[in-house]
Design a protein around this nucleic acid. Sequence first.
DNA 1: CATATTACTTAGCTTAGCTAAACAAACTAC
DNA 2: GTAGTTTGTTTAGCTAAGCTAAGTAATATG
Lengths: 160, 160
Amino acid sequence: MPPRQPAAARAADRLHSAAIHLLRRLRTEDDASGLSAPRLSALSVIVFGGPITLGDLARREQVRPPTITRVVRDLAQLGLVALEPDPADARVRRAVATARGRRLLDEGRRRRVAALTDAIAALPARERARLIGALDVLERVARPEAPRAAPRPRDPAPGR
Amino acid sequence: MPPRQPAAARAADRLHSAAIHLLRRLRTEDDASGLSAPRLSALSVIVFGGPITLGDLARREQVRPPTITRVVRDLAQLGLVALEPDPADARVRRAVATARGRRLLDEGRRRRVAALTDAIAALPARERARLIGALDVLERVARPEAPRAAPRPRDPAPGR
DNA sequence: CATATTACTTAGCTTAGCTAAACAAACTAC
DNA sequence: GTAGTTTGTTTAGCTAAGCTAAGTAATATG
């Protein structure tokens, strides 16, 4: 049976495919950072999410606590993040990015989006405008539970 | 130094992030299939790529031969693909999807896109139009080597 | 204060990636 | 037509990243 919303279904399909190919295209660049995708993603959340609780980080990464424990431990060992105790709750540990972590992420990010940036810059002005104009809708569709109250969409996290 | 195209760079960044979150969101649906992402992806290539050599499959999946050997072995054990010898070359084995494999992939696809379809259908009409209007630009940006002449975007492979 | 809940860690399993090395079949070069 | 090389796949064994279950310590609650 055909879906009830043929236009929406067709759009969903194209969007899905486009997202896959987009990421495939960008993923290659991440290798240069020397970090795996999960580590890069966690580092990104730590860099932009300020000092963050390991539990919160796990939720943000959609991963179970033990997984985060290990990833953060390894990032700490690499000198990219530091773990500090929570002053209010002794059970909690908060992860913060070190200067090195920040730098590494920044360089990786630059590299990663460089190709995409060029592709977008090369678009005819009208098409570029069309793409940019649709970004907020796309973001909403992509993340249903996006922070509504937060003033800015920020979150440049590369995810994984 | 800031990028030469600040607007394009910012768009690239948002696009990257949106793509990640979009796929994360859809990935959850794949769990229902009972197959992991790599297996699902390989199965998809086998289903749509006809009887395919293990080496070719490895290249398509951008993975080393031993990885494919194992994935295909497991898919075969699950009864989703069959391995047949190559009539011309006795070193080669070709993977073909079984009826069950085809069915499973099809259902997964339906499920996966269904969630996104609903989200798109739920958008205000203007926003939906904005999103749909940007899809062709998005597709061009996502796949630089996309078939320009081809009238249809097709390619239903979920990738990984 | 006793109990429950919460935050995190440890232990141990699975899957998926890798490289190196083995093996068999198919080529190629005398 | 045998010797050596190349090719396609597999095996062995490693690491990373995911999971669950169970443990510990701190906090919250009745």
